[in-house]
């Protein structure tokens, strides 16, 4: 009898565990992403083709790469809205240096370093002077984009060598798998391992959950945040290079507004805007969901600007829905407790 009861209880626990796992936002988002992909490939013409797959990967390339360090920053409870402007400034500098006759091999590391320096400025203002990251990065959003226009004006530089532009848009062995997918997978794996399997990754969650407690348990909060901004800037600089090569065009307004898509994807992936919560697989699913939705709508001739309604709405919903779910759960629990009390 007692054995039976225990077995039943264990089974109950297992069911609860599975239900708890399934009910977390990241797994919901993964399932939703799979659902959207399946539905779209059956109902949207040309969605499931290998050619479209290539284009989708190229479209999500800038979002996913910038989203990796952004996940780290948001997990620590900060934000970086200047990434798209850093990308634009890197692109401008790339065009300027190419016009000056430098080789691509030397331009690429310069752009990444420029990105890192721009990130370090953000990091210094946030951690060195203790300013709020939201206000700082709104300021540098305007500053870096403005400098991008100062460097290159409103013209474009377009004559980049095919060896490089071709690599970014090309596929492995002329198959459907784009070259850049390798880059995405390698970087995602590195960031994923760091966040979920190292003490450093755990310390990021600790900082986001309670920066003061993290400080008192020996985590160097300011130094960690500073380096996160440097990495964020460096990645944005690299993406500026990739963006320029993909469209074979260096322009000051490259990537304008990308910060919205990135923040939307990260929040959609279950990272809490208040810090301390989130997972990298969730973020990757968020990026794919966003890209798949946009791609499917575009195939049905929805204009690019109208797509912004979807991105904007997803951004709001990604925070709103978990909040609603939590408040429903608490009212439900309260009612259950009240019922238990009256019995």
């Amino acid at each position: 009898m007692s054995d039976l009861a225990r077995g039943g209880k264990q089974k109950d626990n297992a069911v609860l565990e599975v239900r708890r796992r399934l009910a977390t936002w990241d797994s919901i988002i993964v399932l939703l992403t799979v659902f959207v992909l399946v539905v779209a490939s059956f109902s949207v013409t040309n969605f499931g083709t290998s050619r479209n797959f290539t284009f989708m990967i190229l479209d999500l390339l800038p979002i996913v790469l910038v989203a990796l360090p952004m996940t780290f920053i948001i997990v620590t409870g900060e934000i970086d809205l200047s990434v798209a402007s850093t990308l634009g400034l890197a692109s401008s500098i790339m065009g300027y240096l190419w016009n000056q006759g430098l080789s691509i091999e030397s331009i690429i590391p310069i752009c990444v370093v420029v990105g890192a320096v721009l990130g370090a400025i953000n990091g210094f203002l946030v951690t060195g002077l203790g300013l709020p990251s939201l206000a700082v990065t709104i300021g540098t959003l305007a500053l870096y984009r403005g400098l991008a226009f100062v460097v290159l004006g409103d013209g474009a530089v377009a004559d980049f060598p095919f060896t490089y532009t071709g690599w970014v848009t090309g596929t492995i062995g002329d198959g459907p798998v784009p070259n850049v997918l390798v880059l995405i997978l390698v970087l995602a794996a590195i960031f994923g391992v760091i966040l979920h399997a190292t003490p450093f990754g755990r310390s990021l969650f600790a900082i986001g959950a309670n920066a003061q407690a993290a400080h008192f348990s020996g985590i160097r909060v300011a130094r960690t945040k500073f380096w996160l901004y440097v990495v964020s800037g460096a990645v944005a600089g690299l993406v500026g290079v990739l963006w320029t090569l993909r469209y074979s065009s260096a322009r000051a307004d490259n990537g304008a507004g990308l910060e919205l898509a990135v923040v939307a994807a990260v929040l959609l992936g279950g990272v809490s805007i208040f810090g301390g919560k989130g997972s990298l697989p969730g973020v990757l699913a968020g990026v794919v969901l966003l890209a798949a939705l946009q791609n499917a709508l575009r195939l049905q001739d929805v204009s690019g600007q109208a797509l912004n309604i979807v991105t904007g709405a997803l951004l709001v919903l990604s925070v709103l829905l978990p909040n609603i779910a939590t408040s429903i759960r608490t009212t439900w629990q309260r009612r259950k407790l009240r019922r238990a009390a009256t019995v």
Binding site: L134, L260, L267, N308, I309, V319
Partner: peptide, 10 residues
């Protein structure tokens, strides 16, 4: 921030 960034684009 999240709300008005979203409605900015909407």
């Amino acid at each position: 921030l999240v709300v008005t960034l979203g409605t900015l684009y909407m």
